[in-house]
């Protein structure tokens, strides 16, 4: 379980990190918390010539809430996210989801940026970000640009991020006061990815719904959200079951996954509605 050799880089700022990516092209990969990439390197399923460690880059840290938007630095760890009082009251669904990711040791190092940028369908935060209508700020050689979370995921491990770009911040519009929020996840054991998970926000006349690990990308359904906004819970579930595309794997056959998807979605809807003020 020893990775192949590589050269280690620890740039102090974003410009230097992008410079290293430009210099080495697809030979280089950035590492945030490393809890997806390093296991893959140990299995030799990820091989790279240059590892660019983002841990010293201050520009990628910090959480701010202002003007109706929460701004979260990509290197914010799940542990920091869970402990942030302002986020816990403005966006409780983030804390609820983060607490269901892996285990304490992983949450101390695993970052929100890594979780959303990795493109693994098993990651929990992408569906939460799609549910909330978040935007991702990407920094590259040409400058900055923003991509909506709902447009970011192209296929498993393929995203709108270009090779020389680094995700710097996540921008989340705060839902109107009184909006109920919930993330419900079914997993086989602590540390496992979801068999199915659902992110739901529900206001007085608006709603948004997204799900995790039921397709090769997170699944956000406009129809499901519209049905829930109109008060039709079963219509929402039906629309979502039509939108997902689960595959059979060690977490179960397709009919079982659809069953679990409906169960967790109903639970998440119930929780969000109960929390709506």
């Amino acid at each position: 379980m020893i990775p192949a050799g590589f050269e280690y880089h620890r740039p102090a700022d974003l410009a230097a990190a992008i410079g290293i990516l430009q210099q080495h092209g697809d030979e280089a990969r950035v590492v945030a918390g490393g809890h997806s990439l390093i296991p893959m390197m140990k299995l030799r399923m990820a091989e790279l010539g240059h590892l660019v460690d983002l841990r010293d880059i201050g520009e990628l840290r910090g959480i701010g809430i202002a003007g109706g938007t929460a701004e979260i630095g990509a290197m914010t760890t799940q542990h920091e996210l869970i402990g942030h009082g302002g986020l816990a009251s403005a966006l409780p669904v983030l804390r609820e989801a983060a607490l269901q990711i892996a285990d304490p040791q992983v949450r101390y190092l695993g970052t929100i940026g890594g979780n959303v940028a990795n493109g693994d369908p098993g990651n929990d935060m992408p569906a939460v970000m799609q549910c909330l209508g978040a935007r991702f700020r990407l920094c590259g050689p040409e400058g900055e640009r923003e991509v909506a979370a709902r447009d970011f995921y192209e296929a498993a491990f393929f995203t709108a991020r270009a090779e020389e770009e680094i995700l710097s911040r996540i921008l989340i519009p705060l839902p109107p006061e009184g909006t109920g929020q919930a993330y419900v996840k079914q997993k086989r054991k602590i540390g496992d990815y979801a068999t199915a998970a659902a992110a739901v926000i529900a206001g007085r006349d608006s709603a948004s719904v997204a799900m995790t690990n039921l397709s090769d990308t997170p699944v956000w359904s406009a129809e499901a959200g519209a049905a829930l906004a109109a008060g039709h819970v079963e219509g929402c579930v039906e629309a979502m079951l039509a939108a997902i595309d689960p595959q059979e794997d060690m977490r179960g056959p397709i009919p079982f996954k659809k069953h679990v998807a409906a169960v967790v979605l109903r639970r998440a809807i119930g929780a969000a509605l109960a929390r709506r003020a």
Partner: peptide, 19 residues
């Protein structure tokens, strides 16, 4: 393999020594 690093419990099998 858990050790404490800068006030955090971490799995030392999922971290490079240089880090």
């Amino acid at each position: 393999c858990t050790v404490d690093m800068d006030g955090r419990s971490v799995k030392s099998c999922t971290l490079f020594a240089v880090q």
